[in-house]
Design a binder for these strands. Structure first.
Length: 315
DNA sequence: CAGAAGACCTGCCTGC
DNA sequence: TGCAGGCAGGTCTTCT
């Protein structure tokens, strides 16, 4: 399952190998993978062919490549990619057999020692590609990691700043978590809040559970009840789990395989809560429990992450 | 408007 | 063996 750290590994790989190259041809093998592109597969193909990739940027799990179309000096649109649950962007030689679940093939201009094709592979088709106009971020800051200009694709404009974005401060995060748009108290549970990509982006189910475990918070704790220290701990935990995962997952990709395989070392070694139902909590030894949540699962320690904090006695 | 729920997908696993 | 059902889950749409 690609989450933010995996997406960043992919971004770095693409930045090194695809930036500056021109699209020589496009083949959409499964139209569902471009279903979010407004004009359909034929329009996607014709508009992408001949375009030059000028950068590779990312915000949360949205990735995009600004493209300059023939006659353009500056990119006005971008190839937007979301990996969904099972998406991969592979850089491979044309001679290599098509991988299982290959959905879109993008041919690239020749470059010394570099593979000729960018391949979008996606088993479950939750991910996809599309072409979108670039618009202003509105805040004057670069659109995301790898972006130099304050531009972002239309389809990612509603996505909040990334967990690893330096714009986050403890105070800003506290306000974002405890208050909704109009300054009203945010009544929903804290896990729903941090999974809301319009509040902070890049957090998925796994890292949400991990960060909540580190911060000793119950996932249903009403977001508006977080005290500044609690939201500060939570932000710190989010950044910590992302950065550690990035370190461990970022070591295992080679030049010909711009990879996301969902099996970074982090997943097997460092998870404290997610997927550990029935196993001992690393802090207190109580058994981690799995509970239904939002149609899926939440994992927590029933001792460290209680719904209500213990009342402190001053006697 | 905030929040909740369902839809979209395939492959793997379990139970009958 | 075969089949049904559960599970995984990010985002988009629809409903309250």
């Amino acid at each position: 399952m690609p989450e933010l750290p995996e997406a960043e590994v992919v971004r770095r790989g693409l930045d090194a190998w695809v930036r500056g190259r021109t699209v020589t041809g496009v083949e959409v093998l499964d139209a569902r993978s471009v279903r979010r592109h407004d004009g359909g597969a034929a329009d996607f193909t014709s508009r992408l062919a001949g375009a030059r990739v000028t950068a590779v940027a990312r915000r949360g799990k949205f990735m995009w490549m600004p493209i300059a179309r023939p006659g353009e000096t500056m990119p006005s649109s971008a190839l937007v990619a979301h990996l969904g649950m099972s998406g991969q962007l592979l850089l491979q030689d044309h001679e290599l057999p098509d991988p299982r679940h290959l959905r879109v093939r993008i041919g690239l201009s020749e470059a010394a020692g570099m593979p000729a094709e960018l391949r979008f592979v996606d088993q479950r088709i939750f991910g996809g590609l599309r072409l979108d106009p670039l618009i202003s971020t509105g805040d004057g800051l670069p659109g995301g990691f790898g972006a130099e200009d304050p531009l972002i694709p239309v389809s990612a404009h509603h996505i909040a700043r990334d967990v690893l974005d330096p714009v986050w401060t403890p105070r800003g995060f506290h306000r974002a978590v405890t208050q909704s748009a109009g300054g009203r108290p945010r009544m929903t549970g804290i896990k729903r809040a941090i999974l809301d990509q319009g509040l902070i982006s890049g957090v998925g189910n796994i890292y949400a559970d991990e960060a909540l475990w580190h911060a000793r918070l119950h996932y249903e704790k009403p977001a508006h009840t977080l005290r500044p220290k609690q939201s500060e701990d939570l932000l710190e935990a989010l950044i910590e789990v992302m950065e550690r995962s990035l370190e461990e997952g970022g070591t295992s990709f080679d030049s010909l395989y711009v990879n996301v395989n969902g099996e970074s070392g982090y997943f097997s070694r460092s998870l404290q809560a997610y997927g550990r139902a029935g196993q001992a909590c690393g802090r207190c030894g109580r058994l981690i429990v799995r509970e239904p949540f939002m149609g899926r699962s939440s994992y927590r320690c029933p001792h460290c992450q209680r719904r209500r904090r213990l009342q402190r006695s001053h006697s």
